[in-house]
Write a protein that binds this DNA or RNA. Sequence first.
DNA 1: GAAAAAGGTGAAAGTATTTTCAGGTTTTTC
DNA 2: GAAAAACCTGAAAATACTTTCACCTTTTTC
Lengths: 225, 225
Amino acid sequence: MTDILIIEDTAEIAETLQDFLRRDGYTCEIAGNGEDGLAWLAQHKVRLVLLDLMLPGVDGFQVCNRIHREMNLPLIILSARIDKSDKLDALQLGADDYIEKPYDIDLLLARVRALYRRHYDETARGGILTEGEFVLDSAGRTVIHRGKQLTLTMKEYELLAFLIENKGKVIRKDILLDAVWGRDSFSEPSTLTVHIKWLRDKIEKDSKNPKHIVTVWGVGYKFEV
Amino acid sequence: MTDILIIEDTAEIAETLQDFLRRDGYTCEIAGNGEDGLAWLAQHKVRLVLLDLMLPGVDGFQVCNRIHREMNLPLIILSARIDKSDKLDALQLGADDYIEKPYDIDLLLARVRALYRRHYDETARGGILTEGEFVLDSAGRTVIHRGKQLTLTMKEYELLAFLIENKGKVIRKDILLDAVWGRDSFSEPSTLTVHIKWLRDKIEKDSKNPKHIVTVWGVGYKFEV
DNA sequence: GAAAAAGGTGAAAGTATTTTCAGGTTTTTC
DNA sequence: GAAAAACCTGAAAATACTTTCACCTTTTTC
């Protein structure tokens, strides 16, 4: 059983990725092209795939589609292509997430953790994410906190969900903006600050002394149970 | 392999349920109490559980919790209890949905289909639901239709998702109101009509002649691919 | 085929959400 | 411990979403 298979032709990039993923606690294998990747998948159990779309040989989209149809694995696409329709194609062919190159390694790690958790964490299923005193229900954009139901707005919900999916890890502010507002939004950093405030007002007992959404000076925020 | 296990002490109710579920194409077993239910689950493969909270013997919440923790099965709670905190408890203990008695059988069938599909349909995973030319991404409340990305509002998204999860079946208007707006909202029927219109304006090529969201006179609407 | 019922449309009013900004506070740096 | 940087707060403006309503069109009923 390998946690993550990286399908990427540039050895240097693949090895850097492998290095960071291992430091984050995942076991990791590399396949240098689509054929090797599919071959490895046919013979070994793997839990999540990182796939570079621009591969020599077999078309990346085809690999994506086969991984989805034949193994139904959580799959993140990495790609330098700027064409926006590629993202849509990738999602349609079975990818769960799409990260544009050049990507920030912290962003990638945060996304991997979020996707991994959504699939394998026993506390997360059917759109319901449980963490400590929190139960997030994505269907109704509600949070149950200590038996009390709160209604969050869309942005608040996504912010909280992303922080919880990366609980215990500090998430940089630009990565949060990226994850919740999208890479090409031009939101002010203050927008994030304000939403963090709304969230704290809703979920912290004493929002002046937050226990869950903790500020990490100069970096970003961290969720603690 | 049984599709659905009904854990319900009133034989009459259980049999009626079984009857309707079978007509809807699911194989179905009945357990008359929590112990029997857990025993059956320990020995047979089951894909979804319908559980009455008010059982003789073992507490319904405990059964709920064990089914979640030990088998991690999709689980719908049926209950006559009106206490709102019960719903929250049930979700926290691992239920995926909660239906209040007295329930409408069509509502129940629609919810079962939606939950079943979310878990087992190969075209639905990781918050991404694929159906024909449609790719719904619940994370961003977006729909990709013929390669074009549309942004839906929350109500539009939920309406479309529920219709697609029940594709091919006519869904009554009151059940749609129930599913999207909640049982105890007092929305006018016209609210639904208007949202159907917004949706059609977004996803239909010719919204005067809808091909996907079809009106079924006197009943409700049906999604067709 | 007229009347009744059901559904569709467009606009307006009411809410809610999101963003921005100015000024305040806390933390870090030197 | 003063200055700078980072962060927080509250209010206002802008935007988006939801609901309702009056009137119109289509379908069904008799």
